[in-house]
Structures are given as structure tokens and as C-alpha cells.
Write a protein that binds this DNA or RNA. Structure first.
Lengths: 132, 132
DNA sequence: ACAAATGATACAATTATGGTATCATTTCTG
DNA sequence: CAGAAATGATACCATAATTGTATCATTTGT
């Protein structure tokens, strides 16, 4: 199983690239060349990042994308959430029958503890820390 | 994203049931009734558990399945590995370009740390601890 | 006006997950 | 020994998620 999916991965690469060229407007064309990621897919990803406030977009000739905030203020968890939704390690066990007393299912508790650890760690990783 | 898939979940329910009826040979028919899991799917799951040494099977009339070892010696991680493969949170980043120096990619290190924590925790949870 | 860029969105291909069906083999019981 | 009741092995199918493609509309600089 993967913790990080492809589109999160691509998004990270793009955001890292932009963080390394802070202040420069970067077009999809350039990113495609540099990152070797399928162009239409990358466009879709960048548009999501724009809508989510991670990037700002500039339309028209000479346009492109640029970070909407400082690289220290963009966290791995933010980007994962955009493309992978909320991190829930726990879903399946809501159902039934794994243990006699549903509410206080001991497995749920243990998984919840793991989940909160993972969440905390992922939320602490910012883009700036990935640049070197 | 889910940490535990459906077949792991079903497997857990079945194993827990058998742990609660230690020493009794349980047929798929009975498990299907008790757990309300689709029968042919459950069969496939139990067969996997048998091949992996979690259960023992008894063929022929009056046959079924029974735990191959004590419930304290069967760990959540064992069962997850059977149905979900090795836990790897890290795969995507092997590729390229996320950071300048591929070997010492800082993200890889951070994810590896999270992975080892999750692994450790899941490996410590045994079936016996889920029964009450 | 035109070219070069993104916005929005519908569609398609591939893979993973969840599930079914079937025939072969073993074993108990009458 | 025959037949029923169980698992073993395995091929197949359905659905959903992931990974992508294509296209038309809109904005903006020259």
C-alpha cells in the first residue's frame, strides 16, 4: 500500500520546483520539460493546487503559476489532503462484529493512535524542508 | 485512504471468531452465517490464511478451519501482509527529481521514520488483545 | 486580432479491489 | 463402496479508484 499517490507526488515535485525558483512565474510547458510528467495531467494537478490556494495562477500570454505562500507555510499534509482526501486509517472497522462491544472496540483505539501519530508527522513536514 | 482493506477486515473477523471458539473446527458455512460476509469470498480468504499458516484446514465432511497457533502469536501485521503485501509508504519517491540529490532525499527519510513506527505498532497488536 | 497561456470539464485507459463460479480432491458416514 | 459434505485451486467477472487525455472557453500581453 502507498501512503502517497501519484498526483500528490507530481504536485510535490511541481511545488518544490517553484519553491526553488521563488518569485518566478512558471508555465506548465516548462514544468513538463523539467519534471517529465504528462502535460495534461500536470495541468489538472496545478489547477487543483490553484483552487486550493497553494498556488496562484496568471492567465494569458506569459502566464503560469507561482507559489501563493512561503514554502515554510505549505505542508505535506495539505497537499495530500487535496488529492487523497482526509487521512482515515480506520474506516473499515466501523462496520460490526469484529469485537463484541462495538463502541469500545480495542482495535479502533489502537488504529486511532497510529493515525494521529501519522497525521502529526505529516503535518509537520513543510516544503522548505524538502529542498535540500 | 484506508490502512486496512476489506479482505483483511474479513480475515480479522474470522480469526477473532475462531479465537473465541478455541479448539472448535469451524466451517465456512458457520462463519458465513455468523459474520455475514459473502461466502465464496470468505472461502478464498480462509484458504489464504491456511496457506499462510495462520489457520489449519480439515477437509472432508465435518471439516473446516481452526487456528494454527495461539491467538497471542498471531499479529495484525501478519494478516495485513497476506492480503495487502508489504507496507511501503515510500514507493513513489524512489523515482526522481523531487530533490536535487536523490540518495539522501529528506522526504524519503521522514516517511521511512513514519513507516517504521506504523510497522512497529501494527506488529505489536495480536489477536488475543482484540477479543474483549 | 492573434497567440499564448490557464479554467473547466468530459471522457478514456489501466489497475486494484471485491466478489463469483466451477471443478477437483479429500474424508466422514451409512 | 457410494454419496454427501467439506476444502483446494483457479479462472473469471464487476466495480471503483487511479491515472491519464482531449477539448472548448476565457483571459491577457503584444
Amino acid at each position: 500500500m502507498k501512503l502517497i499517490t501519484r498526483n500528490t507526488d507530481y504536485a510535490l515535485r511541481a511545488v518544490c520546483f517553484m519553491a526553488k525558483h521563488k518569485g518566478k512565474v512558471v508555465s506548465v510547458a516548462e514544468l513538463t520539460r523539467k519534471l517529465r510528467v504528462p502535460r495534461p495531467f500536470l495541468r489538472k494537478i496545478l489547477q487543483s493546487l490553484n483552487r486550493s490556494g497553494i498556488l496562484k495562477s496568471l492567465r494569458g500570454q506569459g502566464g503560469g503559476f507561482i507559489l501563493a505562500k512561503d514554502a515554510t507555510q505549505i505542508f505535506l499534509m495539505d497537499i495530500m489532503r487535496i488529492f487523497q482526501g482526509k487521512l482515515r486509517l480506520n474506516d473499515c472497522l466501523l462496520k460490526k462484529l469484529i469485537c463484541p462491544n462495538k463502541r469500545s472496540c480495542p482495535l479502533r483505539k489502537k488504529i486511532a493512535k497510529i493515525e494521529s501519530y501519522v497525521l502529526k508527522e505529516l503535518s509537520a513536514i513543510n516544503i522548505a524542508s524538502l529542498l535540500e
